[in-house]
Protein backbone atom coordinates (compact mmCIF):
# COMPACT_ATOMS: atom_id res chain seq x y z
CA UNK A 1 0.00 0.00 0.00
CA UNK A 2 1.11 3.52 -0.72
CA UNK A 3 -0.09 6.65 1.04
CA UNK A 4 0.46 10.32 0.39
CA UNK A 5 -1.12 13.73 0.73
CA UNK A 6 -2.48 15.04 -2.55
CA UNK A 7 -4.01 18.23 -3.84
CA UNK A 8 -7.00 17.95 -6.12
CA UNK A 9 -9.37 20.51 -7.58
CA UNK A 10 -12.82 20.83 -6.12
CA UNK A 11 -15.53 21.22 -8.74
CA UNK A 12 -15.56 24.93 -7.86
CA UNK A 13 -11.87 25.19 -8.79
CA UNK A 14 -10.48 25.43 -5.24
CA UNK A 15 -7.40 23.26 -4.59
CA UNK A 16 -8.24 20.90 -1.73
CA UNK A 17 -6.04 18.64 0.35
CA UNK A 18 -6.71 14.92 0.42
CA UNK A 19 -5.08 11.81 1.83
CA UNK A 20 -4.74 9.05 -0.74
CA UNK A 21 -4.18 5.40 0.10
CA UNK A 22 -3.65 3.02 -2.79
CA UNK A 23 -3.07 -0.73 -3.08
CA UNK A 24 0.21 -1.90 -4.57
CA UNK A 25 0.25 -2.79 -8.24
CA UNK A 26 -1.37 -1.51 -11.39
CA UNK A 27 -4.46 -3.67 -11.64
CA UNK A 28 -7.59 -1.77 -12.57
CA UNK A 29 -9.77 -1.23 -9.54
CA UNK A 30 -12.54 0.89 -8.10
CA UNK A 31 -12.09 3.84 -5.75
CA UNK A 32 -13.75 5.25 -2.64
CA UNK A 33 -14.25 8.81 -1.42
CA UNK A 34 -13.97 8.95 2.38
CA UNK A 35 -15.94 11.67 4.21
CA UNK A 36 -14.68 12.28 7.75
CA UNK A 37 -16.68 12.82 10.88
CA UNK A 38 -17.09 16.09 12.72
CA UNK A 39 -13.73 15.77 14.58
CA UNK A 40 -12.10 16.14 11.20
CA UNK A 41 -9.26 14.94 8.98
CA UNK A 42 -7.80 12.96 11.85
CA UNK A 43 -5.60 9.93 12.46
CA UNK A 44 -8.58 7.65 13.03
CA UNK A 45 -10.14 8.48 9.68
CA UNK A 46 -6.80 8.11 7.90
CA UNK A 47 -6.55 4.63 9.37
CA UNK A 48 -9.98 3.87 7.94
CA UNK A 49 -8.82 5.21 4.58
CA UNK A 50 -5.88 2.81 4.66
CA UNK A 51 -8.22 -0.04 5.59
CA UNK A 52 -10.22 0.59 2.43
CA UNK A 53 -6.99 0.48 0.41
CA UNK A 54 -6.23 -2.89 1.98
CA UNK A 55 -9.63 -4.02 0.68
CA UNK A 56 -8.33 -3.26 -2.80
CA UNK A 57 -9.54 0.26 -3.64
CA UNK A 58 -7.89 3.61 -4.16
CA UNK A 59 -9.26 5.60 -1.21
CA UNK A 60 -9.24 9.40 -1.02
CA UNK A 61 -10.02 11.12 2.28
CA UNK A 62 -11.07 14.72 1.63
CA UNK A 63 -9.96 17.36 4.12
CA UNK A 64 -13.36 18.99 4.37
CA UNK A 65 -11.96 21.76 6.60
CA UNK A 66 -9.10 22.70 4.26
CA UNK A 67 -10.69 26.02 3.25
CA UNK A 68 -11.41 26.99 6.87
CA UNK A 69 -8.08 26.11 8.51
CA UNK A 70 -5.61 24.76 5.97
CA UNK A 71 -2.60 24.09 8.18
CA UNK A 72 -4.30 23.60 11.52
CA UNK A 73 -4.19 20.38 13.49
CA UNK A 74 -7.31 18.28 12.84
CA UNK A 75 -8.92 19.13 16.18
CA UNK A 76 -8.24 22.87 15.81
CA UNK A 77 -9.64 22.80 12.26
CA UNK A 78 -12.72 20.95 13.51
CA UNK A 79 -13.24 23.57 16.20
CA UNK A 80 -13.10 26.33 13.59
CA UNK A 81 -15.58 24.55 11.33
CA UNK A 82 -17.82 23.77 14.26
CA UNK A 83 -17.88 27.40 15.37
CA UNK A 84 -18.99 28.33 11.85
CA UNK A 85 -21.90 25.89 11.91
CA UNK A 86 -20.21 23.18 9.91
CA UNK A 87 -19.40 22.95 6.23
CA UNK A 88 -22.09 23.90 3.68
CA UNK A 89 -23.64 21.09 1.66
CA UNK A 90 -22.73 22.78 -1.61
CA UNK A 91 -19.06 22.71 -0.60
CA UNK A 92 -19.28 19.02 0.26
CA UNK A 93 -20.81 18.26 -3.12
CA UNK A 94 -18.21 20.31 -5.00
CA UNK A 95 -15.32 18.72 -3.15
CA UNK A 96 -16.71 15.21 -3.63
CA UNK A 97 -17.25 15.83 -7.34
CA UNK A 98 -13.65 16.95 -7.60
CA UNK A 99 -12.52 13.90 -5.67
CA UNK A 100 -14.47 11.59 -7.98
CA UNK A 101 -12.86 13.19 -11.02
CA UNK A 102 -9.43 12.85 -9.45
CA UNK A 103 -9.99 9.16 -8.69
CA UNK A 104 -11.37 8.39 -12.15
CA UNK A 105 -8.28 10.01 -13.66
CA UNK A 106 -5.94 7.60 -11.87
CA UNK A 107 -4.27 5.14 -14.24
CA UNK A 108 -5.61 2.29 -12.09
CA UNK A 109 -9.22 3.47 -12.23
CA UNK A 110 -11.94 1.17 -13.53
CA UNK A 111 -14.16 4.27 -13.55
CA UNK A 112 -16.23 3.12 -10.57
CA UNK A 113 -16.29 5.32 -7.46
CA UNK A 114 -18.08 4.85 -4.17
CA UNK A 115 -18.43 6.88 -1.00
CA UNK A 116 -18.26 6.17 2.71
CA UNK A 117 -18.91 8.60 5.56
CA UNK A 118 -19.10 8.47 9.34
CA UNK A 119 -21.40 10.48 11.60
CA UNK A 120 -21.84 13.86 9.88
CA UNK A 121 -19.93 12.22 7.03
CA UNK A 122 -22.61 9.56 6.81
CA UNK A 123 -25.22 12.15 5.96
CA UNK A 124 -22.74 13.75 3.55
CA UNK A 125 -22.18 10.38 1.88
CA UNK A 126 -25.89 10.16 1.11
CA UNK A 127 -25.88 13.81 -0.02
CA UNK A 128 -23.08 13.03 -2.46
CA UNK A 129 -24.97 9.98 -3.69
CA UNK A 130 -27.86 12.25 -4.61
CA UNK A 131 -25.84 14.89 -6.42
CA UNK A 132 -22.62 13.36 -7.77
CA UNK A 133 -22.08 10.51 -10.24
CA UNK A 134 -21.04 7.69 -7.89
CA UNK A 135 -21.64 3.95 -7.96
CA UNK A 136 -22.07 2.96 -4.30
CA UNK A 137 -22.94 4.87 -1.12
CA UNK A 138 -22.14 3.81 2.45
CA UNK A 139 -23.73 5.73 5.34
CA UNK A 140 -22.27 4.92 8.77
CA UNK A 141 -24.71 6.21 11.39
CA UNK A 142 -25.34 9.56 9.73
CA UNK A 143 -27.93 11.67 11.53
CA UNK A 144 -30.36 14.02 9.75
CA UNK A 145 -30.49 12.11 6.51
CA UNK A 146 -34.14 12.40 7.46
CA UNK A 147 -35.51 15.06 9.77
CA UNK A 148 -34.12 18.48 10.47
CA UNK A 149 -32.65 19.60 13.80
CA UNK A 150 -34.03 22.44 15.85
CA UNK A 151 -32.75 26.02 15.68
CA UNK A 152 -30.32 25.55 18.59
CA UNK A 153 -28.41 22.80 16.81
CA UNK A 154 -24.88 24.07 16.18
CA UNK A 155 -24.57 22.62 12.69
CA UNK A 156 -26.56 24.16 9.87
CA UNK A 157 -27.96 21.00 8.30
CA UNK A 158 -31.32 19.91 6.94
CA UNK A 159 -32.78 16.52 6.11
CA UNK A 160 -32.21 15.07 2.66
CA UNK A 161 -35.73 13.79 2.02
CA UNK A 162 -36.28 16.08 -0.96
CA UNK A 163 -33.06 14.83 -2.58
CA UNK A 164 -33.54 11.10 -2.07
CA UNK A 165 -35.49 10.70 -5.35
CA UNK A 166 -32.20 11.65 -7.02
CA UNK A 167 -30.14 9.00 -5.22
CA UNK A 168 -28.31 7.37 -8.09
CA UNK A 169 -26.43 4.52 -6.43
CA UNK A 170 -27.21 1.58 -4.14
CA UNK A 171 -27.00 2.52 -0.47
CA UNK A 172 -25.61 0.50 2.45
CA UNK A 173 -26.44 1.94 5.86
CA UNK A 174 -24.91 0.78 9.14
CA UNK A 175 -26.56 1.82 12.39
CA UNK A 176 -26.55 1.03 16.10
CA UNK A 177 -29.91 0.30 17.66
CA UNK A 178 -28.87 2.16 20.83
CA UNK A 179 -28.08 5.33 18.87
CA UNK A 180 -30.31 8.38 19.33
CA UNK A 181 -28.96 10.35 16.38
CA UNK A 182 -30.07 8.64 14.22
CA UNK A 183 -32.59 6.70 16.26
CA UNK A 184 -34.11 3.39 15.14
CA UNK A 185 -37.22 5.39 14.23
CA UNK A 186 -35.12 7.69 12.04
CA UNK A 187 -33.70 4.62 10.29
CA UNK A 188 -37.25 3.25 9.88
CA UNK A 189 -38.20 6.51 8.20
CA UNK A 190 -35.23 6.34 5.83
CA UNK A 191 -36.04 2.71 5.00
CA UNK A 192 -39.64 3.58 4.21
CA UNK A 193 -38.64 6.44 1.93
CA UNK A 194 -36.06 4.37 0.03
CA UNK A 195 -38.50 1.48 -0.37
CA UNK A 196 -41.22 3.80 -1.59
CA UNK A 197 -38.86 5.29 -4.13
CA UNK A 198 -37.65 1.90 -5.31
CA UNK A 199 -34.02 2.71 -4.45
CA UNK A 200 -31.72 -0.30 -3.89
CA UNK A 201 -30.65 -0.26 -0.26
CA UNK A 202 -29.61 -2.38 2.69
CA UNK A 203 -29.92 -0.77 6.13
CA UNK A 204 -28.14 -2.93 8.70
CA UNK A 205 -28.82 -2.42 12.40
CA UNK A 206 -26.72 -3.71 15.24
CA UNK A 207 -27.97 -4.51 18.72
CA UNK A 208 -25.77 -3.45 21.65
CA UNK A 209 -24.21 -0.71 19.57
CA UNK A 210 -24.70 3.03 19.58
CA UNK A 211 -23.09 5.88 17.67
CA UNK A 212 -19.49 5.74 16.40
CA UNK A 213 -19.14 1.99 16.84
CA UNK A 214 -16.36 1.84 14.21
CA UNK A 215 -13.97 4.05 16.15
CA UNK A 216 -11.44 2.03 18.11
CA UNK A 217 -10.25 4.94 20.28
CA UNK A 218 -13.61 5.45 21.91
CA UNK A 219 -15.81 3.74 24.48
CA UNK A 220 -18.39 3.52 21.71
CA UNK A 221 -16.28 0.97 19.81
CA UNK A 222 -18.20 -2.29 19.46
CA UNK A 223 -16.12 -5.09 18.02
CA UNK A 224 -19.09 -7.19 16.91
CA UNK A 225 -20.68 -4.32 14.97
CA UNK A 226 -17.37 -3.08 13.56
CA UNK A 227 -16.24 -6.49 12.30
CA UNK A 228 -19.57 -7.35 10.70
CA UNK A 229 -19.85 -3.78 9.44
CA UNK A 230 -16.52 -4.00 7.63
CA UNK A 231 -17.52 -7.32 6.12
CA UNK A 232 -20.73 -5.75 4.83
CA UNK A 233 -18.78 -2.81 3.39
CA UNK A 234 -16.34 -5.18 1.67
CA UNK A 235 -19.11 -7.25 0.09
CA UNK A 236 -21.01 -4.14 -0.95
CA UNK A 237 -18.02 -2.57 -2.65
CA UNK A 238 -17.09 -5.87 -4.27
CA UNK A 239 -20.54 -6.02 -5.83
CA UNK A 240 -20.65 -2.40 -7.00
CA UNK A 241 -17.08 -1.23 -7.48
CA UNK A 242 -15.70 -4.36 -9.04
CA UNK A 243 -12.50 -4.87 -7.04
Amino acid sequence: MNTCFVTFDSADGTPIQGYLASPEGNDLRGAVIVLHHLPGFDRATREITRRIAVMGYDALLINLYWRQAPTASPDDAAAVARAMGGVPDDQIVADAAGAAAFLRALPTSNARVGTIGFCSGGRQSVLVGCRVDVDAVVDCYGAYVTGTPGPDFPLKVTGLESMLPDLRAPLLGLFGNDDAFPSPEDVDQLEAILTGLGKPHDLVRFDNASHAFFFVDRDSYRVHAALEGWERVSSFYSAHLGA
Binding site: A69, D76, V80, D219
Partner: peptide, 27 residues
Protein backbone atom coordinates in the same frame (compact mmCIF):
# COMPACT_ATOMS: atom_id res chain seq x y z
CA UNK B 1 -16.81 14.09 21.72
CA UNK B 2 -13.43 15.12 23.06
CA UNK B 3 -10.22 15.09 21.07
CA UNK B 4 -8.06 13.88 23.96
CA UNK B 5 -9.95 13.39 27.22
CA UNK B 6 -10.83 9.81 28.12
CA UNK B 7 -14.60 10.08 27.97
CA UNK B 8 -17.24 9.63 25.32
CA UNK B 9 -18.53 13.19 25.70
CA UNK B 10 -17.04 16.14 27.54
CA UNK B 11 -17.79 19.76 28.23
CA UNK B 12 -15.43 21.47 25.81
CA UNK B 13 -14.37 25.10 26.12
CA UNK B 14 -12.48 26.83 23.33
CA UNK B 15 -10.85 30.22 23.81
CA UNK B 16 -10.06 31.32 20.24
CA UNK B 17 -6.86 33.34 19.92
CA UNK B 18 -7.93 36.79 18.69
CA UNK B 19 -6.86 37.40 15.12
CA UNK B 20 -5.62 33.85 14.63
CA UNK B 21 -5.41 32.79 11.00
CA UNK B 22 -5.46 29.06 11.46
CA UNK B 23 -7.82 28.13 14.25
CA UNK B 24 -5.37 28.58 17.13
CA UNK B 25 -7.12 28.32 20.46
CA UNK B 26 -6.67 27.32 24.07
CA UNK B 27 -8.90 24.32 24.58
Amino acid sequence: HPSHALAEHTVNVDFPVPGAQNGERVA
